[in-house]
């Protein structure tokens, strides 16, 4: 494992911790899209089917379990927690995420490495992860004001993707075999989706001002 891959995993982990901290400390999930969180839970559940069939390392296994457990915990909090669920921005979190699921599944049936149950779900999870941030970005755009922790959450999530791209470039030059093209292309699409957010994030950081997205 190289430093970029590790930095990517760590920023991914930090993003989840920031989100849990926000929900725990403020007992509020305002500004957080339940649709995006549900999509991530689905992404991890379908990608890590290999937990039962392939062992890669203790690190990989633990991280997979952490991602599955944390994403389910967040969805549970936003749906079931007596206090937290009251702050959910239900009326502006209206992105039709079922279309993303349907589109990713159709693409996975058409474009995959092998026509097996596990491979199709792996490809599905890669495509869905690339698109899963969309409901969150739309929600932030609609609400305009972004609170600090929500801004940090999306920033770290974007940083995770950027580090993964550096990791693939590094692996391309240092290893005989490289990452998979399905993952590479989807990863580039996914990172590109953050470009707009990053732009406004850096402007607000430079001006030391609150993060605001244009309507």
């Amino acid at each position: 494992m190289n430093i970029f891959r590790f930095a990517g995993d760590m920023t991914h982990l930090i993003s989840i911790l920031v989100l849990l901290l926000k929900i725990y400390a403020t007992k509020s999930c305002s500004g957080i899209s339940l649709k995006t969180q549900e999509l991530y839970a689905l992404v991890f559940l379908t990608r890590y089917l290999d937990l039962f069939t392939d062992f890669i390392s203790v690190y990989n296994t633990i991280m997979k379990l952490v991602f599955i457990a944390s994403s389910l915990a967040i969805v549970w909090c936003m749906r079931m927690h007596r206090v937290v669920r009251r702050s959910y921005d239900k009326e502006i979190d209206t992105f039709r995420h079922y279309f993303l699921i349907l589109a990713s599944f159709l693409l996975a049936v058409l474009v995959h490495e092998k026509f097996t149950f596990q491979e199709i779900f792996w490809a599905f999870s890669i495509y869905l992860e690339a698109l899963a941030i969309l409901p969150q970005l739309v929600l932030l755009q609609r609400s305009g004001n972004v609170d600090n922790l929500t801004g940090q959450y999306v920033f770290f999530l974007g940083a995770y993707r950027a580090f993964y791209i550096l990791n693939w470039i590094y692996r391309y030059f240092t290893e005989q075999h490289f990452s998979r093209w399905i993952a590479c292309l989807s990863g580039i699409v996914q990172t590109a989706l953050y470009a707009d957010f990053f732009y406004y994030y850096f402007i607000s950081w430079k001006n030391n001002a609150k993060l605001q997205l244009p309507a």
Partner: peptide, 10 residues
Amino acid sequence: CRQSPQKDEL
């Protein structure tokens, strides 16, 4: 990208 033997990324 060429094929890697294992899905070792998360």
